[in-house]
Design a protein around this nucleic acid. Structure first.
Length: 95
DNA sequence: TATCTGACGATAG
DNA sequence: CCTATCGCCAGAT
């Protein structure tokens, strides 16, 4: 391994795994924390392809939940203590 | 290797 | 509220 075994993926996964319960982050925030600002799209792919990650703690900056899983997503967030309304995360939540 | 798509972000209409 | 466009990275074909 002349280079690290994961420039983007490993960094992003580490950031997502570091999100404490009851808190939520955005794709852009995670990407920026990983060192790849603007790569929010790749973050969404990792959450979707990589399993074992608290994907429900990651939402879009728009407060929009995951399309197709809004019901599942909202339920998980509520279980963590996050307030969800109309398929969106209430503003003022711990980010 | 090239091209397209996508659990994105922001702006514009 | 919705769609459209550009920019970003990873994965699939």
């Amino acid at each position: 391994m002349t280079d690290d075994g994961g420039t983007f993926t490993e960094a992003v996964i580490t950031v997502i795994e570091a999100i404490p319960a009851g808190e939520i982050s955005t794709y852009g925030e995670v990407a920026a924390e990983a060192g790849f600002p603007g790569a929010a799209r790749a973050v969404g792919h990792l959450l979707r392809t990589t399993h074992g990650l608290p994907w429900w703690r990651v939402i879009s900056t728009n407060g929009r939940l995951v399309p197709g899983l809004e019901r599942e997503h909202a339920q998980r967030l509520r279980a963590e203590g996050i307030t969800v309304t109309q398929g969106k995360v209430r503003m003022g939540q711990p980010t």
